[in-house]
């Protein structure tokens, strides 16, 4: 089934390296106090996970994660940081015990649940057999578009995507309601600069 010998090993190695990098970045974010470093590291986290999406054959998701996670959300986080503060207050204790215990317990329960999950890359798993294969088989005949993700996104699940577009639009409306359009505050800052030191 696999193309050639050694491909599995190469993929396993890529997985280990990328997941290790993700771990390093995530732990660094949990321990950092400089918000600027945290924002930059979260951008790096998105970029590494985008790389891993490519290794998992999800090119469209990788593209979106690289553009959205590493691009827009970093710009928004920096913009919000500029309006709030530079550093986080140090936590009173080195490790917060209760959250740590809650996280470990939740993690152990989730690991226990993975014992029943199908193996990584299993072609016969329930997630990969029914509707997913149907989309792959029917797309050339019914839609005539090579990129199956586009076909499912825009045509088979077009109603779903309409809802997602509505969510993005209403999020923009919510931000505008909370922060204003931007023009008024801009003119205020220009006026202040003119009246101020310059």
């Amino acid at each position: 089934m696999t193309g050639y010998e050694g491909a599995d090993l190469a993929i396993a190695l890529i997985n280990v390296v990328l997941l290790g990098l993700l771990f390093v970045v995530a732990i660094a974010i949990a321990r950092m106090r400089s918000l600027f470093a945290i924002v930059m590291l979260s951008s790096i986290y998105s970029l590494i996970s985008a790389t891993w999406f490519v290794a998992l054959d999800a090119v469209d998701v990788a593209f979106t994660e690289a553009a959205v996670g590493a691009g827009i959300s970093t710009a928004l986080l920096l913009g919000a940081m500029l309006l709030t503060s530079r550093t986080a207050k140090p936590e009173p204790r080195k490790f917060a015990i209760v959250p740590l215990l809650v996280c470990i317990a939740t993690g152990l329960i989730l690991v226990y649940a993975t014992i029943d999950l199908p193996a990584f890359g299993d072609p016969d798993s329930p997630a990969n057999t029914y509707v997913g294969t149907d989309y792959i088989e029917r797309t050339p005949e019914e839609i005539g578009v090579p990129n199956i993700v586009t076909a499912v996104l825009a045509s088979y699940r077009g109603f779903d995507t309409l809802g997602e577009t509505g969510v993005v639009f209403s999020a923009a409306l919510a931000v505008i309601l909370l922060l204003g359009f931007g023009e008024r505050s801009l003119s205020a800052s220009i006026g202040r600069r003119k009246g101020g030191k310059e």
Binding site: L56, D57, L117, P118, G121, N128, G132, I136, I148, V149
Partner: peptide
């Protein structure tokens, strides 16, 4: 995304 991977598969773009 790791659930959607299939061994020996490729990106879902017909070629």
């Amino acid at each position: 995304i790791s659930l959607s991977r299939i061994d020996g598969g490729t990106a879902p773009i017909l070629y």
